[in-house]
Amino acid sequence: MRILLVFACASVLVPISKTQETSLNVTKLTTKNIDFAMDLYRKISSYHDSNIFFSPLCVSTAFAILSMGAEGPTRTEILKGLNLDQLEQDDHPELIPELFQQLQKNTTHDEEVQLAQGTALFVRLDLEVERAFSDQIKKYFKADIQNIDFAEPKASKTTINDYVKKRTGHRISEAVSDIDPFTQLMLINTIFFQGKWELPFDPSHTENDRFYVDKYNIVQVPMMFRDDKFYYCSDESLKVKVLRLPYKGDMAMLILLPNKGVDYTSIDDEINAERLLGWIKQMQIIKLEVQLPKFKMEQSYEMHKILPHLGISSIFENRANFSRLSKEQELKVSEVLHKAVIEVDERGTTAAAATVTGITGYSLPSTFIVNRPFFFFIYHEVTNSLLFMGRVINPTKM
């Protein structure tokens, strides 16, 4: 029997209201999720040398839901692959879903930015889902559970894609292109983000300029420009510069730009939660001329080919144990699909705490010109929850 997981994420640009309180446990959850994001990024990047964009929160939320239906080694494997196993407490079995619930409340309250997460379970007409499981995912994730006739692939595909389209502000129109009529269950998790820059770029200042993909390839891109005060730091040990671009509300984008002559692939293994949170902590406000390319990306990933490299493998095999989800025998995951889109322009972005040595705010530059491959991270500033991350090698490529 087949379970198909689909993650659909869309993102647009929005920073800094620090008035909310967040618990230590939620901070631990977001820290673990950053490290999971970087583990996942490294596996994705090992497949190709091109643009990358995904939502680690979208993926981890879906698998946290799936873990609630799993038992034994299957559940242990999922939580360990997500870096969440250390958060488990024997005397508090529902702690992890409670933390996700609290995190969602913290990140979606802000009226200045659109951020919406959604979860839906589409279930074969005669598949009986355990009442305890359905009650839990409704309670903690506000999940929708709908019966659907997978024996009618065309109609079920339309139903599911219409759901995703609505939940992602019509940014993702086709999450699934075909459906196997023997599918038993589909778990859909969506996240939609739309934010406006706190310091928008003036479109009249946008001009085509060079972007150096590598030493042999140069492309022309629309380069946005703004001269203002920004939060900035540099990490001399890693040879990168970091810029924070705030959105209106509680969200921000970090731009991580390797120094000239530094191969971005040399940085892949060095980024983790400790470094990322260290950069945020050490930033200083300075006057800068910022140049940033406009770009759009639409990326799809077959996570069932990637996740086994993170230790999540038994869910795809006959030994999978989803007895808390359903008493049906031989229930396993067949596919895990993740699709994410982002658009960054002058107005903003649409997208579906250790101290780090070597970080300095001295010898400050006067310009921050993003004209070579870079990384970016969209995060919630109160909780440090990482919503999206990406790598731009060529901003002219989708």
Rank of each mutant, 00 (worst) to 15 (best):
D228M: 05
L337H: 07
G81R: 00
K397W: 14
N371Q: 08
Y47F: 12
Q146V: 11
S156P: 01
K296L: 01
L24G: 12
I52E: 09
Y362N: 15
R131W: 14
F316G: 00
K32N: 15
L57G: 04
G278N: 02
A70M: 11
P93T: 07
S173H: 09
K296W: 00
F322Y: 05
E130W: 11
F374H: 03
V113Q: 09
N25F: 13
I160Q: 01
G261I: 03
E98V: 09
S266G: 05
P373D: 04
K397F: 11
G69I: 02
A353H: 00
S50P: 06
E130R: 13
S366Q: 12
S385G: 14
R75T: 05
V164D: 04
S55R: 03
F295R: 07
L66T: 06
F7G: 10
I315G: 01
L277P: 02
Q89M: 13
S173M: 12
L288F: 01
A64M: 05
A116R: 09
F141P: 00
T206W: 04
V370E: 05
K241C: 10
F230H: 01
S323E: 07
N394G: 04
F54Q: 00
M251S: 04
S314C: 07
E128N: 14
A252T: 07
Q104C: 14
I267F: 09
K296Y: 01
K139I: 11
L40T: 00
Q284I: 15
L254S: 02
Q284E: 09
P200Q: 11
L387N: 00
L40P: 02
K196D: 10
V242H: 01
H109V: 12
E98W: 06
